[in-house]
Design a protein around this nucleic acid. Sequence first.
DNA 1: AAGCTTCTTGACTGAATGGTCAAACTTGAT
DNA 2: ATCAAGTTTGACCATTCAGTCAAGAAGCTT
Lengths: 216, 216
Amino acid sequence: MTAPRPPIAEKPGSARKAPRSRIQTRNRQIILDAALEVFSTHGFRGATLDQIAAQAGLSKPNLLYYFDSKDAIHQELLTRLLHTWLDPLRILDAQGDPQTEIMAYMRRKLQMSQDFPRESRLFANEILQGAPRMESFIRNDLRALVDEKARHLQAWADAGRIARIDPYHLIFSIWALTQHYADFAPQISMIRGEGHDPTDGAEVFLEHLYTRLLAP
Amino acid sequence: MTAPRPPIAEKPGSARKAPRSRIQTRNRQIILDAALEVFSTHGFRGATLDQIAAQAGLSKPNLLYYFDSKDAIHQELLTRLLHTWLDPLRILDAQGDPQTEIMAYMRRKLQMSQDFPRESRLFANEILQGAPRMESFIRNDLRALVDEKARHLQAWADAGRIARIDPYHLIFSIWALTQHYADFAPQISMIRGEGHDPTDGAEVFLEHLYTRLLAP
DNA sequence: AAGCTTCTTGACTGAATGGTCAAACTTGAT
DNA sequence: ATCAAGTTTGACCATTCAGTCAAGAAGCTT
């Protein structure tokens, strides 16, 4: 019944690894940057293509020349984000010194909150929505990594090298404390006065906190 | 030019303190409950009246019989939320025992995360959007309260009754840690397995943490 | 400069959205 | 039972939204 349709030249945004021209690389990046801004503040459903187009300084049809759909832009952002999201924890070394390692992990996460607040908000927005687009990532990749690192933390606690605390809650506490400085930055600014950087004093405080928490 | 328009009977949703029938009280509550569910997961712009109407089991025009607009529903939710949001901190007593007071504050906040996760997510969503609808609340009410309590904490620290830590970051840490269990509950569930309550073990962990952090 | 490809956009479409309205249905006081 | 007030909704409207398309503009290669 269905007539065999002739092969159609793929749009550059499409799946296949099409070689990308300078213009494509540049404009895709501009679009992703604009989309990150909009998605991270309004969530997926609250963001509009017109808004992203305006932010990017491109026309809406032009966005859809580079990406197949609103969904595709969002998906690309998430993919790129999740690819690097695990890195700070992955680096945590079971062979290293417990306090140094955990402290360094905390510092890496805090640094990410300072350097990539929009990515942090994008992630937060997804979780608030129930994480429908990240479920498999969290259930598989993230969970496996956390389980592994939690075993190391537990081993350190058992060996008396750090205090006897629940390793999962230790990890959650680092996520909570560091991401708070990115996700709740407006609140912090309004309370502390617009003068400060929201993270002013955070590193000192968190070092103090984890030094005391971890001491065996 | 404009003809003087006759006084119009106000809709029940309108501003003035109209006396409310049983049906009104009941349906307004049903609507607010449904709206809280929807707004807290999708944010203001991502939520639709149809979705709220479906959740409430009412027709869309019926929603707008009880509230003037989508905005009015959201505003009412925020007003109710902010009215009670400060209470746990307000109770903190400068005359009491420092450790007991701070610990009790942390426990009250954690309890609120368990009891009112949707309210917590609504708040988080607003902050992620830059807090446009809560700016004056944060800049005035919240800031004044935090400043006041921070002075008490500072006095305690100066008197050597708790450790010398930045009082603002101490408060932020309590917000971050307790709200994380509400706002990031899906992530926690997916990592720990659906069996647990996300807040399992949280109280013990946080008590341990603040005991060690606060000790002079 | 010619000719081909890549890029850009104005004008459009169908569906969704916030909101209106008049007519119909309930409720409660008499 | 009656009637006015309170409540509910189907049909509708203007706007916004994601996405399409054909035609034109800009790059690239020769």
